[in-house]
Nucleic acid binder design. Structure first.
Length: 583
DNA sequence: GCCGTTTTCGGCCCGACTGTTTTCAGTCG
Protein backbone atom coordinates (compact mmCIF):
# COMPACT_ATOMS: atom_id res chain seq x y z
CA UNK A 1 0.00 0.00 0.00
CA UNK A 2 1.26 3.46 -0.87
CA UNK A 3 1.22 6.49 1.38
CA UNK A 4 -1.75 7.86 -0.54
CA UNK A 5 -3.73 4.62 -0.14
CA UNK A 6 -3.12 4.66 3.61
CA UNK A 7 -4.07 8.35 3.73
CA UNK A 8 -7.31 7.55 1.88
CA UNK A 9 -8.13 4.86 4.44
CA UNK A 10 -7.45 7.21 7.37
CA UNK A 11 -9.54 9.97 5.83
CA UNK A 12 -12.35 7.48 5.31
CA UNK A 13 -12.18 6.43 8.96
CA UNK A 14 -12.32 10.07 10.01
CA UNK A 15 -15.37 10.74 7.84
CA UNK A 16 -17.20 7.59 8.97
CA UNK A 17 -16.54 8.44 12.61
CA UNK A 18 -17.92 11.95 12.02
CA UNK A 19 -21.10 10.38 10.66
CA UNK A 20 -21.34 8.21 13.76
CA UNK A 21 -21.22 11.38 15.85
CA UNK A 22 -17.74 10.86 17.25
CA UNK A 23 -15.86 13.59 19.06
CA UNK A 24 -14.53 16.08 16.52
CA UNK A 25 -11.05 16.03 18.03
CA UNK A 26 -10.86 12.30 17.53
CA UNK A 27 -12.08 12.40 13.92
CA UNK A 28 -9.73 15.25 13.23
CA UNK A 29 -6.81 13.17 14.46
CA UNK A 30 -7.45 10.77 11.54
CA UNK A 31 -7.69 13.52 8.94
CA UNK A 32 -4.62 15.12 10.42
CA UNK A 33 -2.66 11.86 10.28
CA UNK A 34 -3.70 11.37 6.64
CA UNK A 35 -2.30 14.78 5.79
CA UNK A 36 0.86 14.12 7.76
CA UNK A 37 1.50 10.90 5.86
CA UNK A 38 1.16 12.58 2.49
CA UNK A 39 3.74 15.20 3.34
CA UNK A 40 6.09 12.69 4.96
CA UNK A 41 9.36 12.22 3.09
CA UNK A 42 10.82 8.75 2.65
CA UNK A 43 9.44 5.26 2.24
CA UNK A 44 6.45 4.37 4.41
CA UNK A 45 7.17 0.63 4.38
CA UNK A 46 10.63 1.31 5.71
CA UNK A 47 9.34 3.61 8.43
CA UNK A 48 6.89 0.96 9.54
CA UNK A 49 9.59 -1.71 9.52
CA UNK A 50 11.88 0.45 11.61
CA UNK A 51 9.14 1.47 14.03
CA UNK A 52 9.65 5.16 13.24
CA UNK A 53 5.96 5.99 12.89
CA UNK A 54 5.39 7.01 16.51
CA UNK A 55 8.14 9.57 16.18
CA UNK A 56 5.91 11.62 13.90
CA UNK A 57 4.14 14.33 15.89
CA UNK A 58 0.44 13.62 15.52
CA UNK A 59 0.74 9.84 15.22
CA UNK A 60 0.38 8.01 18.50
CA UNK A 61 0.04 4.35 19.47
CA UNK A 62 -3.43 3.80 18.03
CA UNK A 63 -2.73 5.38 14.65
CA UNK A 64 0.67 3.75 14.35
CA UNK A 65 -0.91 0.35 14.90
CA UNK A 66 -3.61 0.94 12.28
CA UNK A 67 -1.12 2.28 9.74
CA UNK A 68 1.16 -0.71 10.37
CA UNK A 69 -1.72 -3.11 9.81
CA UNK A 70 -2.67 -1.32 6.57
CA UNK A 71 0.88 -1.32 5.24
CA UNK A 72 1.71 -4.90 6.15
CA UNK A 73 -1.62 -6.61 5.34
CA UNK A 74 -3.19 -4.20 2.85
CA UNK A 75 -6.42 -4.04 4.85
CA UNK A 76 -7.85 -2.98 8.17
CA UNK A 77 -10.65 -4.87 9.94
CA UNK A 78 -11.54 -1.76 11.97
CA UNK A 79 -12.26 0.18 8.76
CA UNK A 80 -14.26 -2.68 7.30
CA UNK A 81 -16.44 -2.84 10.41
CA UNK A 82 -16.97 0.92 10.22
CA UNK A 83 -17.97 0.73 6.58
CA UNK A 84 -20.47 -2.00 7.38
CA UNK A 85 -22.08 0.14 10.07
CA UNK A 86 -22.53 3.34 8.00
CA UNK A 87 -24.62 3.35 4.80
CA UNK A 88 -22.62 4.51 1.79
CA UNK A 89 -25.28 7.05 0.88
CA UNK A 90 -24.49 9.07 4.00
CA UNK A 91 -20.94 9.71 2.78
CA UNK A 92 -22.31 10.93 -0.55
CA UNK A 93 -24.77 13.23 1.23
CA UNK A 94 -21.83 14.95 2.95
CA UNK A 95 -20.77 16.37 -0.40
CA UNK A 96 -23.84 18.57 -0.52
CA UNK A 97 -23.25 22.15 0.58
CA UNK A 98 -24.98 22.87 3.84
CA UNK A 99 -24.98 19.25 4.96
CA UNK A 100 -22.39 18.23 7.50
CA UNK A 101 -22.09 15.13 9.63
CA UNK A 102 -24.60 16.25 12.25
CA UNK A 103 -27.37 17.01 9.82
CA UNK A 104 -26.76 13.86 7.77
CA UNK A 105 -26.91 11.81 10.94
CA UNK A 106 -30.14 13.54 12.01
CA UNK A 107 -31.74 12.80 8.63
CA UNK A 108 -30.71 9.17 8.89
CA UNK A 109 -31.89 8.72 12.48
CA UNK A 110 -35.18 10.59 12.20
CA UNK A 111 -36.25 10.00 8.60
CA UNK A 112 -34.33 6.79 7.77
CA UNK A 113 -32.68 8.58 4.83
CA UNK A 114 -29.63 6.62 3.70
CA UNK A 115 -29.42 7.37 -0.02
CA UNK A 116 -29.29 10.47 -2.22
CA UNK A 117 -32.56 9.32 -3.83
CA UNK A 118 -34.41 9.13 -0.51
CA UNK A 119 -33.00 12.53 0.42
CA UNK A 120 -34.33 14.07 -2.77
CA UNK A 121 -37.76 12.50 -2.31
CA UNK A 122 -37.96 13.71 1.30
CA UNK A 123 -37.04 17.25 0.28
CA UNK A 124 -39.58 17.27 -2.51
CA UNK A 125 -42.24 16.02 -0.09
CA UNK A 126 -41.33 18.84 2.31
CA UNK A 127 -40.42 16.39 5.07
CA UNK A 128 -36.91 17.71 5.60
CA UNK A 129 -38.09 21.26 6.35
CA UNK A 130 -40.22 19.96 9.21
CA UNK A 131 -37.25 18.50 11.07
CA UNK A 132 -35.84 20.27 14.10
CA UNK A 133 -32.84 22.35 13.09
CA UNK A 134 -33.88 22.28 9.44
CA UNK A 135 -36.15 24.68 7.59
CA UNK A 136 -37.39 25.70 4.18
CA UNK A 137 -34.08 27.31 3.22
CA UNK A 138 -31.99 24.31 4.20
CA UNK A 139 -34.31 22.05 2.26
CA UNK A 140 -34.04 24.26 -0.83
CA UNK A 141 -30.27 24.41 -0.46
CA UNK A 142 -30.13 20.60 -0.51
CA UNK A 143 -32.31 20.49 -3.63
CA UNK A 144 -30.09 23.10 -5.31
CA UNK A 145 -27.03 21.06 -4.38
CA UNK A 146 -28.58 17.90 -5.79
CA UNK A 147 -29.41 19.67 -9.05
CA UNK A 148 -25.85 20.98 -9.28
CA UNK A 149 -24.31 17.54 -8.77
CA UNK A 150 -26.72 16.13 -11.31
CA UNK A 151 -25.60 18.70 -13.85
CA UNK A 152 -21.88 18.31 -13.20
CA UNK A 153 -21.95 14.51 -13.05
CA UNK A 154 -18.65 12.78 -12.53
CA UNK A 155 -16.35 15.34 -14.06
CA UNK A 156 -12.84 15.81 -12.75
CA UNK A 157 -10.68 18.95 -12.62
CA UNK A 158 -7.99 19.23 -15.28
CA UNK A 159 -5.11 19.27 -12.79
CA UNK A 160 -6.17 15.77 -11.73
CA UNK A 161 -7.32 14.48 -15.12
CA UNK A 162 -4.31 15.60 -17.14
CA UNK A 163 -1.63 13.80 -15.07
CA UNK A 164 -3.75 10.65 -15.14
CA UNK A 165 -4.26 10.95 -18.90
CA UNK A 166 -0.56 11.58 -19.50
CA UNK A 167 0.42 8.65 -17.26
CA UNK A 168 -1.80 6.34 -19.31
CA UNK A 169 -0.58 7.83 -22.60
CA UNK A 170 3.06 7.41 -21.65
CA UNK A 171 2.55 3.71 -20.96
CA UNK A 172 0.51 3.19 -24.13
CA UNK A 173 3.28 4.84 -26.17
CA UNK A 174 5.72 2.23 -24.89
CA UNK A 175 3.60 -0.70 -26.11
CA UNK A 176 5.14 -2.58 -29.06
CA UNK A 177 3.41 -1.81 -32.36
CA UNK A 178 2.23 1.69 -31.43
CA UNK A 179 3.05 4.14 -34.22
CA UNK A 180 1.40 7.39 -33.07
CA UNK A 181 -0.71 8.16 -30.02
CA UNK A 182 -2.31 11.23 -28.46
CA UNK A 183 -4.84 12.32 -25.86
CA UNK A 184 -8.05 13.55 -27.49
CA UNK A 185 -11.33 14.98 -26.27
CA UNK A 186 -11.79 17.79 -23.79
CA UNK A 187 -8.45 16.96 -22.20
CA UNK A 188 -6.63 17.84 -25.41
CA UNK A 189 -8.71 20.98 -25.70
CA UNK A 190 -7.65 21.73 -22.11
CA UNK A 191 -11.13 22.26 -20.82
CA UNK A 192 -11.27 23.08 -17.11
CA UNK A 193 -12.95 19.78 -16.27
CA UNK A 194 -12.99 16.37 -17.96
CA UNK A 195 -15.65 13.65 -18.11
CA UNK A 196 -13.47 10.92 -19.56
CA UNK A 197 -10.03 10.34 -21.00
CA UNK A 198 -9.79 9.57 -24.73
CA UNK A 199 -6.60 7.97 -26.00
CA UNK A 200 -6.04 7.38 -29.69
CA UNK A 201 -3.39 5.04 -31.09
CA UNK A 202 -2.35 4.09 -34.60
CA UNK A 203 -1.05 0.58 -35.14
CA UNK A 204 -1.13 -2.30 -37.59
CA UNK A 205 -1.88 -4.83 -34.85
CA UNK A 206 -4.50 -3.61 -32.34
CA UNK A 207 -5.08 -6.77 -30.33
CA UNK A 208 -1.84 -6.88 -28.27
CA UNK A 209 -2.32 -3.18 -27.48
CA UNK A 210 -5.82 -3.83 -26.16
CA UNK A 211 -4.51 -6.69 -24.04
CA UNK A 212 -1.73 -4.57 -22.59
CA UNK A 213 -3.96 -1.53 -21.95
CA UNK A 214 -6.31 -3.25 -19.51
CA UNK A 215 -3.31 -4.42 -17.47
CA UNK A 216 -1.89 -0.94 -16.80
CA UNK A 217 -1.41 -0.41 -13.04
CA UNK A 218 -3.75 2.60 -12.88
CA UNK A 219 -6.63 0.51 -14.27
CA UNK A 220 -9.00 -0.42 -11.45
CA UNK A 221 -11.81 -1.91 -13.54
CA UNK A 222 -12.30 -3.08 -17.12
CA UNK A 223 -15.63 -1.85 -18.46
CA UNK A 224 -15.34 -3.15 -22.02
CA UNK A 225 -12.67 -4.74 -24.18
CA UNK A 226 -13.11 -5.17 -27.93
CA UNK A 227 -10.77 -5.59 -30.91
CA UNK A 228 -10.16 -1.82 -31.47
CA UNK A 229 -11.76 -0.10 -28.49
CA UNK A 230 -11.46 -0.68 -24.76
CA UNK A 231 -12.96 1.19 -21.82
CA UNK A 232 -11.60 1.09 -18.30
CA UNK A 233 -11.88 2.89 -15.03
CA UNK A 234 -8.51 4.37 -14.10
CA UNK A 235 -7.42 5.99 -10.84
CA UNK A 236 -4.36 7.83 -9.67
CA UNK A 237 -3.29 10.07 -6.81
CA UNK A 238 -2.28 13.54 -7.81
CA UNK A 239 -0.86 15.81 -5.10
CA UNK A 240 -2.84 14.04 -2.42
CA UNK A 241 -6.14 13.94 -4.27
CA UNK A 242 -7.56 10.89 -6.00
CA UNK A 243 -8.63 11.15 -9.64
CA UNK A 244 -10.92 8.46 -11.02
CA UNK A 245 -12.06 8.59 -14.63
CA UNK A 246 -13.26 6.38 -17.41
CA UNK A 247 -10.55 6.00 -20.05
CA UNK A 248 -11.27 4.90 -23.61
CA UNK A 249 -8.57 3.59 -25.91
CA UNK A 250 -9.14 3.43 -29.66
CA UNK A 251 -6.82 1.95 -32.24
CA UNK A 252 -6.90 2.94 -35.93
CA UNK A 253 -4.52 2.50 -38.85
CA UNK A 254 -1.83 5.10 -39.27
CA UNK A 255 -3.53 6.42 -42.44
CA UNK A 256 -6.68 7.05 -40.43
CA UNK A 257 -4.88 8.60 -37.45
CA UNK A 258 -5.15 12.31 -38.41
CA UNK A 259 -8.89 12.00 -39.13
CA UNK A 260 -9.55 10.10 -35.92
CA UNK A 261 -7.44 12.56 -33.94
CA UNK A 262 -9.45 15.48 -35.27
CA UNK A 263 -12.75 13.69 -34.82
CA UNK A 264 -12.16 12.56 -31.23
CA UNK A 265 -10.66 15.89 -30.20
CA UNK A 266 -13.93 17.64 -31.01
CA UNK A 267 -15.68 19.65 -29.88
CA UNK A 268 -18.82 18.20 -31.36
CA UNK A 269 -19.87 21.68 -32.45
CA UNK A 270 -16.54 22.27 -34.16
CA UNK A 271 -16.78 18.90 -35.91
CA UNK A 272 -20.23 19.69 -37.26
CA UNK A 273 -18.89 22.87 -38.86
CA UNK A 274 -15.95 21.00 -40.34
CA UNK A 275 -18.15 18.25 -41.77
CA UNK A 276 -20.35 20.91 -43.32
CA UNK A 277 -17.28 22.47 -44.96
CA UNK A 278 -16.39 19.07 -46.38
CA UNK A 279 -19.91 18.61 -47.77
CA UNK A 280 -19.69 22.08 -49.38
CA UNK A 281 -16.62 20.78 -51.22
CA UNK A 282 -18.29 17.56 -52.32
CA UNK A 283 -16.58 15.45 -49.66
CA UNK A 284 -17.44 13.68 -46.41
CA UNK A 285 -15.34 14.00 -43.28
CA UNK A 286 -15.51 11.32 -40.62
CA UNK A 287 -13.12 9.67 -38.17
CA UNK A 288 -11.51 7.60 -40.93
CA UNK A 289 -11.15 9.79 -43.98
CA UNK A 290 -11.93 12.89 -46.00
CA UNK A 291 -13.37 11.38 -49.17
CA UNK A 292 -16.20 10.81 -51.64
CA UNK A 293 -17.10 7.88 -53.93
CA UNK A 294 -14.37 8.69 -56.42
CA UNK A 295 -11.50 10.08 -54.41
CA UNK A 296 -9.92 10.25 -50.97
CA UNK A 297 -7.79 13.17 -49.78
CA UNK A 298 -4.63 11.84 -48.15
CA UNK A 299 -3.66 13.74 -44.99
CA UNK A 300 -0.56 13.01 -42.97
CA UNK A 301 -1.61 15.17 -40.03
CA UNK A 302 -4.42 17.46 -38.83
CA UNK A 303 -2.90 20.49 -40.58
CA UNK A 304 -3.46 18.71 -43.91
CA UNK A 305 -7.14 18.21 -43.09
CA UNK A 306 -7.60 21.89 -42.27
CA UNK A 307 -5.68 22.85 -45.41
CA UNK A 308 -7.85 20.57 -47.55
CA UNK A 309 -10.86 22.47 -46.23
CA UNK A 310 -9.30 25.88 -46.88
CA UNK A 311 -8.23 26.64 -43.32
CA UNK A 312 -4.98 27.15 -41.43
CA UNK A 313 -4.22 24.81 -38.54
CA UNK A 314 -6.58 25.51 -35.63
CA UNK A 315 -5.22 24.84 -32.13
CA UNK A 316 -7.28 22.30 -30.12
CA UNK A 317 -8.04 24.90 -27.40
CA UNK A 318 -9.92 26.99 -29.98
CA UNK A 319 -12.12 24.22 -31.37
CA UNK A 320 -15.40 25.19 -29.74
CA UNK A 321 -17.15 26.73 -32.75
CA UNK A 322 -16.90 30.15 -31.17
CA UNK A 323 -15.53 31.86 -34.26
CA UNK A 324 -12.38 29.86 -34.98
CA UNK A 325 -13.61 28.74 -38.40
CA UNK A 326 -14.41 32.30 -39.46
CA UNK A 327 -11.11 33.60 -38.05
CA UNK A 328 -9.32 30.83 -39.94
CA UNK A 329 -10.96 31.89 -43.18
CA UNK A 330 -9.98 35.50 -42.58
CA UNK A 331 -6.46 34.53 -41.49
CA UNK A 332 -6.99 36.28 -38.15
CA UNK A 333 -6.41 33.35 -35.79
CA UNK A 334 -4.32 34.49 -32.80
CA UNK A 335 -0.80 33.23 -32.08
CA UNK A 336 -1.68 31.82 -28.67
CA UNK A 337 0.31 32.65 -25.54
CA UNK A 338 2.60 29.83 -24.34
CA UNK A 339 3.87 28.69 -20.93
CA UNK A 340 7.34 29.87 -21.90
CA UNK A 341 6.05 33.42 -22.47
CA UNK A 342 5.34 33.93 -18.76
CA UNK A 343 8.07 35.98 -17.05
CA UNK A 344 6.70 36.36 -13.52
CA UNK A 345 3.70 35.90 -11.25
CA UNK A 346 1.49 38.16 -9.12
CA UNK A 347 -0.94 37.38 -6.31
CA UNK A 348 0.82 34.86 -4.08
CA UNK A 349 0.79 34.22 -0.35
CA UNK A 350 3.51 33.76 2.25
CA UNK A 351 3.57 32.76 5.91
CA UNK A 352 2.75 36.40 6.67
CA UNK A 353 -0.87 35.43 5.90
CA UNK A 354 -2.06 31.95 4.96
CA UNK A 355 0.87 30.66 2.88
CA UNK A 356 3.20 27.87 3.96
CA UNK A 357 6.55 29.36 2.91
CA UNK A 358 8.50 32.52 3.65
CA UNK A 359 8.95 35.44 1.30
CA UNK A 360 12.48 34.34 0.51
CA UNK A 361 11.54 30.69 -0.07
CA UNK A 362 8.76 31.73 -2.42
CA UNK A 363 11.06 34.11 -4.31
CA UNK A 364 13.70 31.40 -4.69
CA UNK A 365 11.10 28.91 -5.90
CA UNK A 366 9.95 31.49 -8.45
CA UNK A 367 13.51 31.89 -9.68
CA UNK A 368 13.89 28.11 -9.88
CA UNK A 369 10.95 28.07 -12.32
CA UNK A 370 12.92 30.42 -14.55
CA UNK A 371 10.75 33.45 -13.75
CA UNK A 372 11.99 36.99 -13.10
CA UNK A 373 9.57 38.38 -10.53
CA UNK A 374 7.47 37.26 -7.61
CA UNK A 375 4.52 39.46 -6.70
CA UNK A 376 3.55 38.96 -3.09
CA UNK A 377 -0.13 39.47 -2.37
CA UNK A 378 -0.94 38.44 1.17
CA UNK A 379 -4.43 38.93 2.52
CA UNK A 380 -5.64 42.22 4.01
CA UNK A 381 -6.68 42.80 7.62
CA UNK A 382 -10.39 41.89 7.46
CA UNK A 383 -9.73 38.33 6.35
CA UNK A 384 -8.82 37.20 9.84
CA UNK A 385 -9.40 33.55 9.00
CA UNK A 386 -6.46 33.74 6.59
CA UNK A 387 -4.43 35.86 9.04
CA UNK A 388 -4.82 39.01 6.96
CA UNK A 389 -2.15 41.63 7.62
CA UNK A 390 -2.91 44.69 9.77
CA UNK A 391 -1.18 47.88 8.51
CA UNK A 392 1.75 47.44 10.89
CA UNK A 393 2.45 43.98 9.52
CA UNK A 394 2.29 45.37 5.97
CA UNK A 395 5.00 47.92 6.72
CA UNK A 396 7.08 45.21 8.36
CA UNK A 397 6.71 43.07 5.25
CA UNK A 398 7.81 45.95 3.02
CA UNK A 399 11.02 46.25 5.04
CA UNK A 400 11.49 42.48 4.77
CA UNK A 401 10.98 42.67 0.98
CA UNK A 402 13.63 45.39 0.68
CA UNK A 403 16.01 43.27 2.74
CA UNK A 404 15.44 40.09 0.69
CA UNK A 405 15.57 41.97 -2.61
CA UNK A 406 18.94 43.41 -1.65
CA UNK A 407 20.20 39.90 -0.98
CA UNK A 408 18.76 37.95 -3.93
CA UNK A 409 19.80 38.17 -7.53
CA UNK A 410 17.96 36.93 -10.60
CA UNK A 411 14.52 37.38 -9.09
CA UNK A 412 12.71 40.40 -7.71
CA UNK A 413 9.92 40.57 -5.16
CA UNK A 414 7.19 43.06 -6.04
CA UNK A 415 5.18 44.63 -3.21
CA UNK A 416 1.51 43.85 -3.49
CA UNK A 417 -1.54 42.88 -1.53
CA UNK A 418 -4.74 40.94 -2.07
CA UNK A 419 -7.04 43.51 -0.58
CA UNK A 420 -10.57 42.57 0.41
CA UNK A 421 -13.43 44.35 -1.27
CA UNK A 422 -15.65 45.20 1.70
CA UNK A 423 -19.42 45.02 1.76
CA UNK A 424 -19.88 48.56 0.43
CA UNK A 425 -17.20 48.23 -2.28
CA UNK A 426 -14.56 50.12 -0.33
CA UNK A 427 -11.13 48.63 0.22
CA UNK A 428 -9.74 47.03 3.35
CA UNK A 429 -6.85 49.52 3.82
CA UNK A 430 -6.78 53.32 3.85
CA UNK A 431 -5.53 55.20 0.79
CA UNK A 432 -2.24 56.14 2.38
CA UNK A 433 -1.26 52.53 2.97
CA UNK A 434 -2.61 51.43 -0.43
CA UNK A 435 -0.38 54.01 -2.12
CA UNK A 436 2.66 52.20 -0.73
CA UNK A 437 2.07 49.01 -2.72
CA UNK A 438 3.48 48.48 -6.21
CA UNK A 439 0.20 46.81 -7.12
CA UNK A 440 -3.11 45.82 -5.55
CA UNK A 441 -5.29 42.80 -6.32
CA UNK A 442 -8.84 43.48 -5.18
CA UNK A 443 -10.91 40.41 -4.28
CA UNK A 444 -14.24 39.45 -2.71
CA UNK A 445 -13.99 37.03 0.21
CA UNK A 446 -17.18 37.70 2.13
CA UNK A 447 -20.96 37.93 1.80
CA UNK A 448 -21.13 35.68 -1.26
CA UNK A 449 -24.91 35.54 -1.06
CA UNK A 450 -25.38 39.21 -1.93
CA UNK A 451 -27.99 39.93 -4.64
CA UNK A 452 -26.47 40.23 -8.12
CA UNK A 453 -27.04 43.97 -8.53
CA UNK A 454 -25.43 44.73 -5.17
CA UNK A 455 -22.47 42.47 -5.81
CA UNK A 456 -21.93 44.01 -9.24
CA UNK A 457 -22.05 47.53 -7.81
CA UNK A 458 -19.71 46.48 -5.01
CA UNK A 459 -17.04 45.14 -7.39
CA UNK A 460 -17.44 47.98 -9.90
CA UNK A 461 -16.95 50.52 -7.11
CA UNK A 462 -13.73 48.78 -6.08
CA UNK A 463 -12.52 48.84 -9.68
CA UNK A 464 -13.01 52.60 -9.72
CA UNK A 465 -10.56 52.99 -6.84
CA UNK A 466 -7.29 54.47 -8.15
CA UNK A 467 -5.10 52.13 -6.08
CA UNK A 468 -6.54 48.95 -7.57
CA UNK A 469 -4.39 47.34 -10.26
CA UNK A 470 -6.31 44.18 -10.97
CA UNK A 471 -9.42 42.24 -9.99
CA UNK A 472 -8.84 38.86 -8.29
CA UNK A 473 -10.90 35.66 -8.89
CA UNK A 474 -13.85 37.42 -10.50
CA UNK A 475 -16.67 35.11 -9.41
CA UNK A 476 -15.27 33.14 -6.47
CA UNK A 477 -16.35 29.85 -8.04
CA UNK A 478 -14.90 26.52 -7.00
CA UNK A 479 -15.13 24.14 -9.94
CA UNK A 480 -17.45 21.15 -9.39
CA UNK A 481 -18.05 22.37 -5.85
CA UNK A 482 -19.57 25.78 -5.67
CA UNK A 483 -21.00 28.18 -8.22
CA UNK A 484 -19.55 31.66 -8.12
CA UNK A 485 -21.42 34.48 -6.49
CA UNK A 486 -24.06 36.13 -8.61
CA UNK A 487 -22.48 39.00 -10.50
CA UNK A 488 -22.98 40.73 -13.83
CA UNK A 489 -19.60 40.09 -15.43
CA UNK A 490 -20.40 42.16 -18.47
CA UNK A 491 -20.80 45.22 -16.22
CA UNK A 492 -17.64 44.30 -14.34
CA UNK A 493 -15.68 44.08 -17.59
CA UNK A 494 -17.07 47.44 -18.67
CA UNK A 495 -15.95 48.98 -15.38
CA UNK A 496 -12.49 47.41 -15.75
CA UNK A 497 -12.18 48.78 -19.28
CA UNK A 498 -13.42 52.22 -18.22
CA UNK A 499 -10.97 52.52 -15.34
CA UNK A 500 -8.08 50.86 -17.15
CA UNK A 501 -7.84 47.92 -14.74
CA UNK A 502 -6.49 44.44 -15.36
CA UNK A 503 -8.36 41.23 -14.59
CA UNK A 504 -6.65 38.12 -13.35
CA UNK A 505 -7.06 34.59 -14.52
CA UNK A 506 -6.75 32.85 -11.19
CA UNK A 507 -4.81 29.74 -12.21
CA UNK A 508 -5.72 27.63 -9.20
CA UNK A 509 -7.21 24.59 -10.98
CA UNK A 510 -10.19 24.65 -8.64
CA UNK A 511 -10.94 28.23 -9.73
CA UNK A 512 -9.80 29.04 -13.30
CA UNK A 513 -11.70 32.25 -12.76
CA UNK A 514 -12.15 34.45 -14.95
CA UNK A 515 -13.80 31.80 -17.09
CA UNK A 516 -12.31 31.48 -20.59
CA UNK A 517 -15.50 32.66 -22.27
CA UNK A 518 -15.19 35.99 -20.48
CA UNK A 519 -11.45 36.08 -21.08
CA UNK A 520 -12.25 36.29 -24.75
CA UNK A 521 -14.77 39.04 -24.06
CA UNK A 522 -12.24 40.95 -21.92
CA UNK A 523 -9.71 40.80 -24.74
CA UNK A 524 -12.24 42.24 -27.14
CA UNK A 525 -12.73 45.12 -24.70
CA UNK A 526 -9.00 45.77 -24.50
CA UNK A 527 -8.63 44.69 -20.87
CA UNK A 528 -5.15 43.39 -19.98
CA UNK A 529 -5.17 39.92 -18.40
CA UNK A 530 -2.80 38.72 -15.68
CA UNK A 531 -2.25 35.01 -15.08
CA UNK A 532 -1.83 34.48 -11.33
CA UNK A 533 -1.11 31.17 -9.59
CA UNK A 534 -2.51 32.41 -6.22
CA UNK A 535 0.22 30.18 -4.79
CA UNK A 536 0.10 29.37 -1.09
CA UNK A 537 3.25 27.21 -1.27
CA UNK A 538 6.33 26.95 -3.52
CA UNK A 539 4.82 23.91 -5.26
CA UNK A 540 1.80 25.92 -6.35
CA UNK A 541 3.76 28.59 -8.23
CA UNK A 542 3.90 26.36 -11.31
CA UNK A 543 0.10 26.23 -11.44
CA UNK A 544 0.25 29.28 -13.69
CA UNK A 545 0.37 26.84 -16.61
CA UNK A 546 -3.30 26.01 -15.99
CA UNK A 547 -4.01 29.71 -16.28
CA UNK A 548 -2.13 29.79 -19.58
CA UNK A 549 -4.49 27.07 -20.82
CA UNK A 550 -7.48 29.24 -19.92
CA UNK A 551 -5.82 32.19 -21.66
CA UNK A 552 -5.33 30.07 -24.78
CA UNK A 553 -8.97 28.99 -24.70
CA UNK A 554 -9.75 32.69 -24.42
CA UNK A 555 -7.77 33.42 -27.62
CA UNK A 556 -5.05 35.43 -25.85
CA UNK A 557 -1.71 36.18 -27.44
CA UNK A 558 1.48 36.98 -25.58
CA UNK A 559 0.74 40.70 -25.86
CA UNK A 560 -2.65 40.31 -24.17
CA UNK A 561 -1.08 38.97 -20.96
CA UNK A 562 0.59 41.46 -18.62
CA UNK A 563 2.97 39.03 -16.96
CA UNK A 564 4.61 38.06 -20.23
CA UNK A 565 6.42 41.40 -19.95
CA UNK A 566 9.96 41.70 -18.62
CA UNK A 567 10.62 42.97 -15.10
CA UNK A 568 11.66 46.49 -16.23
CA UNK A 569 8.54 46.75 -18.40
CA UNK A 570 6.31 45.56 -15.59
CA UNK A 571 7.79 48.00 -13.06
CA UNK A 572 7.53 50.83 -15.53
CA UNK A 573 3.87 50.12 -16.13
CA UNK A 574 3.06 49.68 -12.42
CA UNK A 575 4.82 52.97 -11.66
CA UNK A 576 3.00 54.72 -14.47
CA UNK A 577 -0.28 53.57 -12.96
CA UNK A 578 0.79 54.76 -9.50
CA UNK A 579 1.58 58.21 -10.84
CA UNK A 580 -2.07 58.49 -11.71
CA UNK A 581 -2.99 57.66 -8.12
CA UNK A 582 -3.54 60.70 -5.92
CA UNK A 583 -1.49 60.12 -2.77
C1' DG B 1 -7.43 10.44 18.39
C1' DC B 2 -2.77 13.19 20.29
C1' DC B 3 -0.07 15.61 23.58
C1' DG B 4 2.74 17.17 27.89
C1' DT B 5 8.42 23.19 31.23
C1' DT B 6 0.14 23.34 32.33
C1' DT B 7 2.65 15.95 31.97
C1' DT B 8 -1.80 10.84 32.46
C1' DC B 9 -6.35 14.56 32.34
C1' DG B 10 -8.12 18.06 30.09
C1' DG B 11 -7.23 20.98 26.21
C1' DC B 12 -6.95 20.71 21.44
C1' DC B 13 -10.52 24.35 17.32
C1' DC B 14 -10.48 30.06 15.11
C1' DG B 15 -14.20 33.13 13.63
C1' DA B 16 -17.85 34.47 10.43
C1' DC B 17 -22.01 33.30 8.59
C1' DT B 18 -26.50 30.90 8.03
C1' DG B 19 -30.64 29.47 9.34
C1' DT B 20 -32.65 28.26 12.86
C1' DT B 21 -33.92 29.97 16.78
C1' DT B 22 -35.07 33.48 20.84
C1' DT B 23 -29.71 32.18 22.40
C1' DC B 24 -27.26 28.94 19.42
C1' DA B 25 -25.92 24.64 16.68
C1' DG B 26 -23.93 23.50 12.51
C1' DT B 27 -21.21 24.49 8.47
C1' DC B 28 -17.31 26.29 6.13
C1' DG B 29 -12.81 28.08 4.99
Amino acid sequence: MTKDDVADALNEIGTLLELKGENAFRTNAYHNAARLLQSLPGDLNQMVAEGKLEEVRGIGDALAEKITTLVTTGKLPYLEELRASVPEGLVQMLRLPGLGPKKVKALHTNLQIDTIEKLKAACEAGEVAKQKGFGAKTQQKILDGLAFIDKVGHRVRIDLALPLGLALLEQVRAFPGVIRSELCGSLRRRKETTGDIDILVSSASPQPIMDAFVKITEVVQVIAQGPTKSSVLAAMHVRGEKATLQADLRVVTDDQFPFALHYFTGSKEHNIRMRQRAIDRGLTLNEYALANETRSVPCKDEADIFAALGLPYIEPELREDTGEIEAGEQKTLPALVKDSDIRGVFHNHTTASDGTASLEQMALATKALGLEYFGVGDHSQSLTIARGLPPGAVRKQWAEIDRVNAKLSGVRIIKGSEVDILEDGSLDYDDELLAGFDYVVASVHSLFAMPEAEMTARVCKALAHPAVTMLGHATGRLLLKREGYKINLEEVLKAAAKHGKMIEINAQPSRLDLDWRYVKRAKAMGIPIVINPDAHSPGELGLYTFGVQVARRGWLTKDDVFNTRSLPDVMKELNRRKQKTPA
